Amino acid sequence: MKNSLAFLILFSVCSSLSGQTLINDKAIVAQQERMVYKQWDQDKFYPEPKRLLGIPTNPMWYSTWALHPDYPDLDRRPLSAAGEQTQRLGLAAAMQISSDYYKQHSDTLKNLANAEMARISGALSATDPLYQLYYKKELKPLDDPDSNAFHGISQEVVAYMTDHGAYQWYLNNMASLSERYEFARSLDMERGQRILMYHRIMLDMRDILKKWQYKLDMSANMLAFRKMNDRKINGEITLSYPTDEVERAKRIANKTQVLK
């Protein structure tokens, strides 16, 4: 029993020694309210001076505010209109606006660069509307010159053109144009320059095809004349106007000099 009583007395003493007393200092509370959320109220600076004839008479005021007489006159709240935190927030907002501006400017430059690259890129040259609507069809013979060389031509003419080198002349010229055509489609350049290259290649191709067709026609005429002459020599046919036929043969022979 005595031990229990002693324990209770000891517990009470220890509790009283370690306990905390709530201090409600209105000066501290007023300072906390000023600095945190309320307005800067000059009438709530404690302890008050208690003036007598304009002279402070409160010794506690002297120990607290006498060394800082200008402190109550200036709003020191961090979130006041001119407070440090307000300035930091304003600076952060200004930096965000500046960052957004530079980002927008950077995005604009990127979009312009992408548009410019798309405009001059050879990888996207096939998407050009003018190329799709006109030049792709006009320059199609350059995609496969061999298959279009003797379309609808007899084997005799083919053999004659091959033996006399005319076919090799056609292949060399068309291969050169095909190489230029591939450069025009694949290299990076201005759209107008690319279109001009297409047009020049098309004109050169038409000139070569015109000459090639002329060679084919003249070869066919030459072979036909040879056949007719052989038949005449063999007595299979008789020419009604031998003089005219001789003149015609001479003209054909003169024109076919370009085939050799």
Rank of each mutant, 00 (worst) to 15 (best):
M1V: 14
K2E: 14
K2R: 15
L5G: 13
L5K: 05
F11Q: 02
S16I: 11
L22V: 13
E33N: 14
Y37F: 12
K38C: 13
D41N: 15
D43V: 01
D43C: 00
K44W: 04
P49T: 01
L52C: 07
L53P: 04
I55R: 02
T57V: 03
T57P: 00
N58H: 00
M60F: 08
M60T: 02
W61I: 00
W61C: 00
Y62L: 09
S63H: 04
S63C: 05
H68M: 13
P78G: 07
P78Q: 02
L79I: 11
A81L: 03
A81E: 14
E84V: 14
E84P: 10
L89V: 05
A92I: 12
I97W: 02
D100Q: 12
D100K: 11
H105A: 10
S106F: 14
D107N: 09
N111R: 13
L112V: 06
A113M: 08
A113H: 03
E116Q: 10
I120V: 15
S121T: 09
G122N: 06
G122V: 04
S125E: 09
A126N: 10
P129E: 03
Y131F: 06
L133T: 13
E138W: 02
P141K: 01
N148A: 04
A149L: 00
S154K: 06
V158P: 01
A159Y: 02
W169A: 11
L171G: 01
M174T: 07
S178Y: 00
D188T: 09
M189E: 13
R194C: 07
I195T: 06
L196F: 07
H199P: 01
R200G: 04
M202W: 00
L203R: 07
D204I: 00
W212P: 01
Q213V: 06
K215D: 15
D217C: 12
M222N: 00
L223F: 01
F225H: 09
R226F: 05
N229P: 03
N229V: 13
R231C: 03
K232C: 02
I233R: 01
G235T: 05
G235C: 03
Y241M: 10
D244L: 09
D244N: 10
E245L: 11
V246Y: 14
K250L: 06
I252S: 10
K255R: 09
V258R: 03
V258W: 01
K260L: 11
